[in-house]
Write a protein that binds this DNA or RNA. Structure first.
Lengths: 350, 350
DNA sequence: TATTAGCACTCGGATTAAATGAGTGCTAAT
DNA sequence: ATTAGCACTCATTTAATCCGAGTGCTAATA
């Protein structure tokens, strides 16, 4: 026994009906709704087969069937193969709204936050956006300057976007020439280096040349370490976490706490993002159904992720987290558009 | 009929019992627990009086009593008057833990985030921490510099802590002398000014002096506006939002969404913080019980807030949000200590 | 051989009924 | 002024019952 044409059709109907209603689907419903004209009895036989094959599940004897993870998986794979998804609803509106969103923001951080917000609003699921993850950032530029007579500011530019500021107190103010010297020293030695390439020997040489200002260098060095770490670390923004409470199957009190916790406290989500980045294919869109993802607290959810790219080689992630019966078509479509837009923005902007 | 000694004693017992158990308190319980030796019948009479006076409530005929908002209010006021609260449990441990927390952080932002986290962990309530709110920040220092041949970096220092960076593309690179000139121009005109004091006329004069680089000034100006706004805007960090699910009286599905939403999405919380700042007294500790606070979604919660001060005149808020039957003693005590520590840190550090 | 009609059976969920017990208010006695 | 006693209330628990959507199986049909 295998998946013939008719079984596939029935399976599809079961799943899409279940996506809409969230209730187990019975044989009668299908007999009426599907266009193949069969009696409920025949459908029942087929459903028994589908259950044996592992695509659907009966929550209890004498209830309709719901899709198993395998069933969802089949459905999603099928869907991804259809060469293009042509949902066009209100495309223009949405497009202009997005433009607005993008225009207003100048700092990437702010923009990504608002991407998460808008997305959560649009879809009614929880959303997740990570900052681009850059393998190994290089030091681009350093500048010291006196802000007032007892405080010095160090500005450190890493990679292409990250800027780190460091305010430090100094006992006696440095003259303009001294500052200038230090700046030249710092930039000529360090520009273009990664964290690994700044070694003890180099640091020693520099300190010798800096003479009496060696202590300042110390502070600057630790600032550099932090700046580079910061640039490498990925930040995660989430939004719409409470949306999941809208789906009764997820709102059961015992799990809901753990679920919300993972979404709000974020730390665990890093795993998800890492996973995403490592196995990308098909337009960078990934679908994780139920326990296909790493986090046990999300085992009753599905997660759809997409990646966007920075031209410098960084890769960020956008994800949607919802119930297993989420509207995959819409979600995939939305994410595709969104990441396309993001790609464009980041490349135009550079 | 008024609050005599005995009624007060009974009221206190009712409230503190209810704080522990969360269950309505009946007359028998009190007859046994309180040290005044009365029969349950007498207590019942007194309780009827207390109810008439508005201090307690009967959820339904024939159940015990629970405190009304007024009752809580009485209890809290009473408690605040007792000159000092002497909970000493594990004081040293906690103290060292705090030291750790403070040491590791250098950036204020990071530190405040972790304050919220630790606090939420310690208390099992939701917490809120706002960055200091400074009335009217002044521009302290501006510096332009070329990062590479086509990009210019503007560093803008506002108030005492906030630093804003602005990366912009320029068609043709400026020479060192030109940059130097612009820097002198900017600082000599703008240093020490607030947003109001930078007017059109001033801007015009500067543009004339800048000659061909007027367009750069434009960008810098809008950067300044943003930087000052950023410094004035208060940021709010929350943590432990899901803690509220631990209290059954708050976990009812219909309210819980709104509740979590306010905590997670933060925007509304600004109101709370504003309120706090405006009416502070008694060590800056404020207790808002039930609908005493502005936000309808928090009407079944109590909120305890405290303020900490920056020496430059900024004021930040730390708050705890929990069920009305929260452990007020502990919370007030914790907040007092915490803000004392924060004050110390910020003043030592400066 | 594939499909269908018919029927007995299952079982979760909703509805109803009764039992429980913590707690009250009131009255009469101390 | 206090207390013992009693009738009454009402949320909560438990059990009993009903309902109906849905199934699996069998025998009839095309």
């Amino acid at each position: 026994m295998s998946l013939d044409e008719r079984k596939m059709k029935i399976l599809k109907t079961i799943i899409s009906t279940y996506l809409e209603t969230g209730e187990p689907v019975g044989s009668r419903t299908i007999a009426k709704d599907s266009d193949l004209h069969l009696s409920s009895a025949t459908i029942r036989n087929e459903m028994a087969d589908l259950e044996e094959l592992g695509y659907i599940i009966q929550p209890h004897t004498s209830s309709g069937r719901i899709p198993s993870d395998l069933g969802y998986r089949y459905y999603v794979n099928q869907m991804m193969e259809e060469h293009d998804i042509e949902i066009r609803e209100k495309e223009e509106e949405i497009e202009t709204e997005r433009q607005m969103m993008f225009q207003k923001m100048d700092r990437m951080e702010e923009m990504l936050k608002s991407v998460a917000d808008v997305l959560a609003n649009d879809t009614n699921y929880a959303t997740l956006v990570s900052t681009p993850h850059i393998r190994e950032s290089k030091l681009k530029f350093i500048q010291l300057s006196m802000v007032d007579h007892c405080r010095m500011l160090a500005v450190i530019v890493v990679g292409n976007e990250t800027v780190k500021n460091l305010l430090m107190n100094v006992e006696d103010p440095l003259s303009n020439e001294e500052i200038l010297k230090l700046n030249i020293l710092l930039n000529s030695f360090l520009q273009g280096l990664t964290l690994n390439e700044i070694n003890l020997e180099l640091m020693h040489t520099m300190k010798v040349q800096a003479g009496m200002h060696a202590t300042i260098l110390e502070t600057v060095f630790s600032g550099i370490v932090e700046a580079i770490h910061e640039a490498n670390d990925l930040e995660i923004y989430t939004s719409g976490a409470t949306n999941i409470l809208k789906y009764p199957e997820l709102a059961n009190p015992s799990q809901t706490t753990a679920l919300l916790d993972t979404l709000v406290e974020k730390k665990q989500l890093v795993k998800l993002v890492d996973e995403t980045v490592s196995d990308q294919e098909k337009h960078g869109i990934q679908v994780y159904i139920g326990s296909e993802n790493q986090l046990p607290s999300l085992k009753d959810c599905s997660i759809v992720t997409a990646t966007y790219d920075l031209e410098e080689g960084g890769t960020g992630t956008v994800g949607i987290i919802g119930p297993k019966r989420m509207d995959y078509r819409k979600v995939v479509h939305t994410l595709k558009n969104l990441t396309a837009d993001l790609d464009e923005i980041f490349n135009k902007k550079s």
